[in-house]
Amino acid sequence: MDTFEPQIVAFCCKYCAYAAADLAGSMRLAYPPNVKIVQLPCTGRVDIFHLLTAIEDGADGVYVAGCLEGECHFMKGNFRARKKVEYVKKTLAELGIEPERVEMYNLSSAMGPRFAEIAQEMTDRIKELGPSPVRTETV
């Protein structure tokens, strides 16, 4: 289990989390390479289906990172994303899988260090939980 390196998919809004990831890079901040980023035009674009498919295909953890609440460029996209994340958490719980494998985060494009912190936090959390019970092979 010590060698377990989780595969984590992060759905990031281009206006905030994705830009924050860029900033983290410019600031030479290190964050775990376990996190694979998918850029979205807004977290409102993310669908329950996308989050479930990531889990189905073997991701050990999935998170959505959107703008700070009240700061969404499309007004309610991040609130909608949060509800979808909550739905997926409930679905996982119903299937006997830890709902903590899915999470919603909010940050701004100026929060590069916070982006790195979230990536570390999620990686630590998933390492603690262990491999996804759905994972059958290396993704």
Binding site: L52, T53, E56, T91, L95, G96, I97, T136
Partner: peptide, 21 residues
């Protein structure tokens, strides 16, 4: 369509977890 996709994915996750895809 979306609900079909979500149900299909949920059932596949459950069965993968059981080891009976």
């Amino acid at each position: 369509l979306k609900e079909v996709q979500v149900l299909a994915s949920s059932l596949k996750i459950a069965r993968k977890k059981e080891g009976r895809p």
